[in-house]
Nucleic acid binder design. Structure first.
Length: 281
DNA sequence: ATGGCAGAAGCATTCTGA
């Protein structure tokens, strides 16, 4: 089962590239971020025409996430309120469409677009921290169901220095600061593994290159698009890749797709266990 | 300290992102 994530920076601008990539790789699931379109204007027919169904949680111009799937998407949860009591979530946090989850082939897919935060002294940074605190609550609540889980998307955080082309240049700055890393690590708890780091220990692998300053040509990138798998899927993961060549497209997104291969034939029985196993790992 | 590049909205230029 191939599961992918791609910040497309406007699905309408990127539509032909995304469709072409889907037809080439045929993943079971593709999570999109920054669709930048209201639900009614989402180009859902282009996906249905090639055998995918679409669940979207969008807004006009900004943000927006969508799950594209070959198989049925069940138990869809829109925003933080899809998982948490409405009373604990501010209107402000829920107004930006950044989180969408669904159950596909028994796997809980949680698609996130973490706020960028602009700079550490800005109001947007406060928003980012509040958003990550709510993500923590969300994941604690979601874990109670014991579902095998894939948490993926644009995290706008390089969790380690090895995820930045020149970490010394960005010590303490946005997407690299300790406070952001701490918030994300707390939200992940001990329940998730960064799938890419299961296979690759070294630096030099990026998922995003700034449009400016010839960053891609100079390979000045960051790895901020992540696929985390719950520990109970560790035996099933076969690969985790970054589709770097998509940055060579004409008018590319600044992000490229990332993708894992889960072999669900192995240890299927584990999924039928009660939820104790997630606490034992 | 700022802009650099790109997209949306909407028609000149501003806002936003990372």
């Amino acid at each position: 089962m191939l599961i992918a994530s791609w910040n497309v920076n406007s699905i309408r601008s990127r539509l032909s590239q995304v469709i072409e990539w889907l037809e080439d790789k045929r993943p079971e699931v593709l999570c999109l971020q920054e669709t930048k379109v209201s639900d009614k204007d989402f180009p859902y027919k282009s996906f249905e025409d090639i055998g995918y169904s679409v669940k979207m949680y969008g807004q006009k111009s900004y943000n927006g996430v969508a799950i594209i799937s070959k198989d049925k998407i069940a138990d869809i949860r829109y925003g933080f309120t899809g998982e948490l009591n409405q009373l604990e979530i501010s209107q402000e946090l829920e107004s930006q469409k950044r989180i969408l989850s669904g159950l596909i082939n028994g796997i809980r897919i949680i698609n996130v677009y973490v706020p960028n935060g602009s700079s550490l002294n800005s109001e947007k940074f406060t928003y980012k921290i509040n958003w990550l605190a709510m993500l923590n609550k969300y994941l604690v609540e979601q874990a109670k169901r014991g579902e095998p889980t894939c948490l993926l998307g644009d995290f706008n955080i390089a969790l380690n220095d090895s995820d930045i082309y020149a970490p010394h240049k960005f010590t303490g700055s946005i997407m690299a600061s300790e406070i952001e890393r701490k918030m994300l690590r707390k939200a992940l708890g001990s329940r998730f593994k960064d799938s890419f780091r299961v296979f690759e220990k070294f630096s030099g692998h990026w998922s995003w290159w700034d449009y400016r300053n010839n960053s891609f040509e100079l390979n000045k990138g960051w790895r901020i698009d992540h696929i985390y798998i719950s520990n109970n899927l560790l035996n099933n993961i076969k690969s985790s890749v970054i589709e770097r060549s998509q940055r060579e497209n004409n008018q590319p997104s600044d992000h490229v797709p990332v993708m894992i291969n889960l072999d669900l034939l192995e240890n299927l029985i584990e999924f039928e266990d009660d939820d104790d196993d997630i606490f034992n790992l």
